[in-house]
Computed example of a mutant assay.
Amino acid sequence: MHIDALAIGGNEFEFHEFATIGPVLADVFDGVAELNRTTDRDAVLELDAYDVLVDYTTKADWTDEQLAAIRSFVTGGGGYVGIHCAADVDSFVDDPCDDLASLIGGRFVTHPEMTDLEVEIVDQNHPVTADVETVRTYDEPYQLDWNEDRVDVLAEFTHESMGTMPAAWVRSEGDGRVFYCSLGHDTDAFDPDDVRTLLRHGLSWAARER
């Protein structure tokens, strides 16, 4: 199995600096995918060279051309893996055309303080979660706005201020596959083995290797 992935992020936000998180992602996906890491958003204009786009951008100011390239890549059969802050977009879930939240299937709304989370797997039969147990981690719990009719939730957690929120889901877009996981606020959040397994399986599934 050989998967080529473009991993893109930014350095504008302290805890989401790609200079720090990028090497962690390379370690998480080691043996699963070869990551080409960049902060140059124009790199998405050359997605034909890759199997998967790994998105760790925060409030990315995507141009219409870049968004069109991402959507074309996914609808044409490519994979999209959104991690944590990728859903922090100034757009709406049900917008048509080139809206990123629509592609992901949801968007970030807000979050309380970081806390211990117990993430329950709600679909043990999906290839992404088949080998994953309950995920226990210390992370930033995301409140999300998502379209229940357009995503298949695989894992969720319950927080006293937000109720039950999805932590990971999958969906299809054209001939492509989308995997989103809300975990991954900082380097320590990627330490638990089950978090790593969930992400690795999600990428492999998005690339149609699982």
Rank of each mutant, 00 (worst) to 15 (best):
R171L: 03
H126N: 08
F92R: 12
H2W: 07
L67W: 01
N125V: 12
H126R: 04
G176L: 00
P141D: 06
I104C: 05
D94M: 09
T57P: 04
E12Y: 08
V170S: 07
T134P: 13
Y180E: 06
D88F: 09
S72P: 04
D186F: 14
A5S: 07
D175L: 04
T129R: 09
V122K: 11
D149F: 09
E148W: 00
I70E: 12
V195E: 06
T115K: 11
V81S: 02
V178Y: 00
E34C: 00
T63Q: 00
F157A: 04
L117E: 09
N125F: 12
E120R: 14
A130M: 10
E17K: 15
L154M: 06
F73G: 04
Y56H: 12
C181I: 10
W62M: 02
G10C: 11
D152K: 13
L45V: 07
D64N: 08
T158N: 01
K59Q: 11
P141R: 00
V170A: 09
S172Y: 02
I3W: 03
E34W: 05
V44L: 13
E46T: 11
V151P: 09
L6I: 07
D61V: 00
V93T: 13
D90Q: 09
A43W: 11
F108T: 03
T158A: 02
A86F: 07
H126K: 07
E34T: 12
Q124D: 15
V28D: 06
V109M: 14
A87V: 12
G78E: 04
H185A: 04
F73T: 05
L100M: 10
E17M: 15
M1S: 11
A101W: 06
I83E: 08
R41W: 15
Y50K: 03
I104T: 12
D194A: 14
H126F: 05
L53G: 03
D139L: 09
A43F: 05
E156M: 10
I8P: 04
V54S: 09
P127K: 02
D145Q: 11
L35Q: 04
T57G: 11
F15M: 14
A69W: 08
V153G: 00
V195D: 02
F13E: 06
W205Y: 03
Q66W: 08
H126M: 09
G184E: 00
I3R: 00
V128W: 05
G105S: 02
L203F: 03
G9P: 02
E65T: 11
T57A: 12
T39P: 02
A19W: 10
G76W: 01
T20L: 14
P141F: 00
A167F: 07
F73R: 03
E173V: 04
P127T: 02
D186H: 15
Y180L: 05
D149P: 03
W146I: 03
